[in-house]
Amino acid sequence: MRTILIPTDFTSVPLLLLKHAATNMNHQLDVIFMYSTSLSDSITDLLFYSPKKLIAKVISQDFNEGCIIMQNRYPDKIRSIRYEVLTSAHSNSFAMLAQSNKVDEVLLPVDYNFQLKHLAFDPTRHILHSGVPVSEVDLHLPVRITERDLIASLMTN
């Protein structure tokens, strides 16, 4: 059994990484999608901070369905899928998050620019500096224009 962490921007790329992991790894997988975002400065937002709500705000119906498609396809391999929020742009905080979740491996796409919305940031630098084992996956993605149909690109790439 292996816990893998996939930094996510809720496009098809993290799902394609999951697909890659499910097809190429021989372990049962606990999958963590990590969303990295700074927190807003608003006091009320901080007071009512809830990672669940934060994720619910940015996750799309299609992404959820994509997860279900993958779970349906690999019911034995993908044991669980859950979400974590990285709120601090600091290598240490990522290392701590990885440690507390017992992450065995981080999957990173090669040559990919995260689609950053709101206060989200690209965690690649912090992941590489944290010392957690990283495998970089080349998805051979075509030159990307704005994504229109997440499920379609998950199914056809």
Binding site: R73, I151, L154, T156
Partner: peptide, 17 residues
Amino acid sequence: VQVSLATTNNQVIIVIK
């Protein structure tokens, strides 16, 4: 032309690309 098939818990999805 790629024709793919996948299912969620309540839908069957066919993508033709």
